[in-house]
């Protein structure tokens, strides 16, 4: 009710993409259903679980709780933007440590880890605990922690 439909231009993974959206539509649903970037997942819709995590101007954002209109003019990176073949250094660490089980949360986890590693060369366990609040129901936390350290150490 009361929302206005508008056309917006978003900068996503280095490309400019255009979408017609209601002005209150969360970025998540524009990514998934309008732009067909389905690697970003819906989990809770209230910014708790982090399955929808993307990077906006270098900072993590819960895309379920950010209106797409608010991302206009900002650089948005989704899981699809990290690499063409899964060989970005965090993705590779995730593969080496064999983190995923069902895999549903891992796009968000990898985005959160990428943002953390963008801010800190060698995040401590405490940094990880504080910065990565995403939920994994399969319980891959131990490997997520190991993969973040491995990614930091293996970065060239």
């Amino acid at each position: 009710m009361g929302s206005i439909m508008m056309r917006i231009e978003l900068k996503i993974n280095g490309s400019t993409m255009s979408a017609e959206v209601d002005d209150d539509t969360p970025l998540l649903w524009v990514l998934r259903d309008t732009l067909k970037l389905k690697g970003t997942k819906y989990g809770c819709g209230i910014g708790q679980c982090g399955a929808c995590t993307v990077i906006v101007d270098g900072q993590t954002a819960r895309s379920c709780s950010l209106a797409a209109t608010a991302a206009v003019g900002l650089e948005v990176t989704t899981i699809e933007g990290l690499s063409a073949n899964g060989d970005q250094f965090v993705q590779k660490a995730w593969q080496d440590i064999r983190v995923p089980q069902c895999g549903y949360c891992q796009s968000g986890m990898i985005m959160a880890a990428t943002a953390l590693l963008g801010k800190k060369l060698f995040p401590t366990d405490e940094d990880i605990d504080r910065e990565i609040t995403n939920i994994c129901r399969c319980g891959t936390y131990d490997r997520i922690r190991a993969a973040i350290h491995a990614a930091a150490n293996g970065r060239t």
Partner: peptide, 27 residues
């Protein structure tokens, strides 16, 4: 042995039920 679906589970390319996309689809 590494999981056969390991890489697509790190790239967002794996399709779950919620990712089904069909022409003219409604919600």
């Amino acid at each position: 042995i590494k999981r056969l679906d390991l890489v697509p589970k790190t790239t967002g390319k794996l399709e779950y039920g919620i990712d089904v996309d069909l022409p003219g689809m409604l919600y």
